[in-house]
C-alpha cells in the first residue's frame, strides 16, 4: 500500500494534472479532490496546486479559502495533516492563516516566468526531508502575485525558528521580503512556496532537471515510514 495524496481542483486551478502526475512519478497515489467536497476522502496528505482560483478576484486565494473543501482541510492541517501549497496554493494557505504573512503583486507589476534558483533552508519539514539543508535547486517560477510580506516581528520569528523553508538565490523575482520563497508552519506539516516543483520532476520538461521531485518523495517516505 502506498500513500494517497489529494490534489484539490478549484475553479481556475491550472496545475492539478501536473501535480497528480508528479505524485504518481514519486510512487504515491494521487486522489482528485473537488473544491465542493465536504470531506478529504481520507487522504494522507493534500497538495493545493497552482493556478488562478476564482480568477484571483478580491485577492489571490481569498475566495478559494472559503470553499467547502477548505473547512476539513484547515481543521486537519492544524492537527498534523501534511499540506503543501504551491503558488496559488501558497496564497490560499496564507489567506487561511495556516501560514503567516501574505502574498501581494510582484513589485515590478509584471507576470514573471523563469527558472528560479532556490536554497532549501529547512530540510526537516514533511515536504523537504529528501533535500539537504542549504541545497540549491532550480525550480520553475510563474506568477503575478509572488511578493511575500509579513511584519518585521513575524519575519524575525520565522528566521529564528527556521521557518523560512526556501529562499530565492542570486535574484529576487518579485520583491519578497528577505528573499523568502516559501515558509513552513511551526510543526513542519504545512509548507507553502511560490515556485512550482511539480514542473520539475522529469528530465525532458520543466527546468530540464528533476529538482522538484524530492518534495513528493519526501512526503511519500514520511507517510509510508521508509
Amino acid at each position: 500500500m502506498t500513500a494517497r495524496i489529494g490534489v484539490v481542483t478549484f475553479p481556475g486551478s491550472l496545475d492539478d494534472r501536473d501535480t497528480q502526475r508528479a505524485i504518481r512519478l514519486a510512487g504515491a497515489e494521487p486522489v482528485a479532490l473537488w473544491h465542493k467536497d465536504k470531506d478529504l476522502k481520507q487522504v494522507d496528505a493534500v497538495v493545493l496546486c497552482g493556478g488562478f482560483s476564482y480568477g484571483d478576484y478580491l485577492r489571490a486565494g481569498a475566495i478559494a479559502r472559503f470553499s467547502p473543501v477548505m473547512e476539513p482541510l484547515i481543521e486537519q492541517a492544524k492537527s498534523g495533516l501534511p499540506v503543501l501549497g504551491i503558488c496559488n496554493g501558497f496564497q490560499i494557505l496564507t489567506e487561511a492563516h495556516l501560514l503567516p504573512g501574505a502574498m501581494l503583486g510582484n513589485d515590478h507589476l509584471h507576470f514573471i516566468c523563469r527558472d528560479q534558483k532556490l536554497r532549501v533552508e529547512n530540510a526537516d519539514t514533511s515536504w523537504t526531508s529528501d533535500y539537504a539543508s542549504g541545497q540549491e535547486i532550480h525550480i520553475p517560477l510563474k506568477n503575478m502575485d509572488g511578493r511575500y510580506v509579513a511584519d518585521e516581528r513575524t519575519l524575525d520569528m520565522l528566521e529564528a525558528e527556521g521557518r523560512v523553508a526556501f529562499r530565492y538565490v542570486d535574484f529576487n523575482p518579485n520583491g519578497s521580503l528577505r528573499d523568502i520563497a516559501g515558509v513552513t508552519n511551526e510543526a513542519g506539516n504545512v509548507v507553502g512556496l511560490m515556485p512550482h516543483p511539480e514542473h520539475a520532476v522529469e528530465p525532458l520538461i520543466g527546468s530540464g532537471r528533476t529538482d522538484g521531485l524530492p518534495f513528493f518523495t519526501s512526503i511519500l517516505k514520511k507517510l509510508v515510514n521508509v
Binding site: L104, G105, N106, D107, H108, L109, R147, V149, D151, G175
Partner: peptide, 13 residues
C-alpha cells in the same frame, strides 16, 4: 487600504 508600511507598486506607478 494597504497598511502604510506595505509597498504599493501600483500606487507608485
Amino acid at each position: 487600504m494597504l497598511k502604510p508600511e506595505i509597498l504599493d507598486p501600483q500606487g507608485q506607478a
